[in-house]
Write a protein that binds this DNA or RNA. Structure first.
Lengths: 257, 257
DNA sequence: CCACAGCTGGATGTCAGACATTTAGCATAG
DNA sequence: CTATGCTAAATGTCTGACATCCAGCTGTGG
């Protein structure tokens, strides 16, 4: 009955696979169904009781498998009469959120350096600014404008944070490339989380907003070269602040030990 | 006992949150512990029975929460006497694998176009080639060389696929930026999956290998400009093949309806 | 003294069945 | 026609039991 059984002491050199846990096998099978397109986004999977009998495992096992798939953004489960597990199309936000937490863990364990973040951000956001200048829609522009505060003097740290995030999101969204959006959001997000706890001067904050204005203007004007250059300059300007914030975070980590 | 109770028919306009499912709350709490660094990679969580009593839910609920965290690469669970749920550091491969499947779904649903893939790939792999030229180690070079076949004539489609994947992996690994690696792998991987089912001519395949040789030479020579240029040319060359493969995949999808 | 078989304790993996809760739709009373 | 309440179908949760795996201890034969 069990594949890893006995073998009579022969110790044959056959490679035998470890037993895959039942809920993993179930998850694999369902994932395959979804990936092969045999059940499409919006479709409902059979209910838990049915799956249970069809696959010959208990409902508890089925449920553990469903939790795995849900955590991977492949299904969404709802209660009620019309409820069930529905195949879902992952959204850029889902994927970004997942990436953010995973990357945050990596950085927290110091297996990724600040330079790597800054480097990748440059490779993503500078082209994004260029593309935004070329391809933005009216709605994009509006969104970008809305993410620049009128006046920096009456802003708290938290407000600054929100505007900042909004601005960079708006740019990468305006570039019209969903994949670039997915990649850029987490990088920015993790960097910003560190900066958030750092103390920033008034002058610094108002310079940030000034930079944003210039970038927005270049994009609105449809001038890709200017947008690219301004974004590049802006990231250069931010660099020392990130270095400081990163160092502070390191010290906090040290102190916590 | 239940927070969403009664309210005596007053129907006040208070905003009340939907009940969070128990296993979600448990997962959230544990995720927080991990993210705040209160339990560090390698640490073991309390066993299921303990968590069950401490959090006041059944073991089944605890287990569903653990499955969620495991699917998000935050813990690994093992059986046996020394078993339990251990906090894990996600690896670049884990993250890439997750991204690959999610992005594959997006592309399958046609919510991401081929152009977006090619665009992002350009932004990631061209700089990667440049960085590889600047920062490669000896081991990196060896890896890159090993990923170029001696002779293209006796290679099956499957072999070609393996070499191709190996080559591009080796480059982005040699660039020394883990984040770039994480972002680039899935993009390449999804593109390649489509190309795999397409029919490719002998001339095409040998040109690919020739390109790879030139890129490898530039990297080995430590010439970033040349590496960048060669990689750019290479991607240009690949473009039409991808377009064809993508179209074929579309047709297959149409036929399947 | 050592090697090895076997036991054992502690942990996860799986099962079976029951009950609670949520939700949509239907039926019915006013 | 509307509001109310019932019901069916699904997931959510609990309980308790047993199966399985694995490190380490233990005792025994050589």
């Amino acid at each position: 009955m069990h594949s890893q059984q006995a073998n009579g002491g022969a110790r044959a050199p056959v490679e035998l696979r470890r037993v895959r846990k039942a809920y993993e096998q179930v998850a694999d099978q369902l994932r395959d169904l979804i990936m092969r397109g045999e059940v499409k986004p919006g479709n409902r999977l059979p209910n838990e009781a049915t799956l249970s009998t069809q696959m010959g495992v208990s409902r508890a096992t089925i449920r553990e498998a469903l939790r795995v798939l849900a955590a991977q953004n492949m299904i969404r489960t709802t209660k009620g009469a019309t409820g069930g597990s529905f195949v879902m199309l992952p959204t850029a936000d889902h994927i970004s959120a997942f990436l953010s937490s995973n990357i945050a863990l990596l950085s927290q364990a110091e297996s990724v350096s600040l330079d790597e973040f800054l480097e990748l951000r440059e490779y993503l956001e500078v082209p994004a600014a260029r593309l935004a200048a070329l391809r933005h829609s009216d709605a994009d522009l509006e969104q970008i404008e809305r993410a620049i505060p009128e006046d920096t003097r009456d802003l708290g740290v938290e407000d600054q944070f929100v505007y900042n995030k909004g601005f960079h999101s708006a740019i990468v969204e305006a570039c019209g490339n969903t994949l670039l959006l997915i990649a850029a959001q987490p990088v920015f997000s993790v960097l910003q989380t560190h900066l958030r706890r750092s103390t920033l001067g008034r002058r610094f904050l108002s310079q940030v907003v000034a930079d944003h204005r210039k970038i927005a203007a270049a994009i609105a004007a449809g001038d890709p070269d200017a947008a690219e250059a301004e974004m590049h300059r802006h990231l250069e300007f931010l660099r020392p602040a990130y270095r400081r914030a990163w160092r502070e975070a390191d010290e906090r980590r040290q102190a916590a030990l």
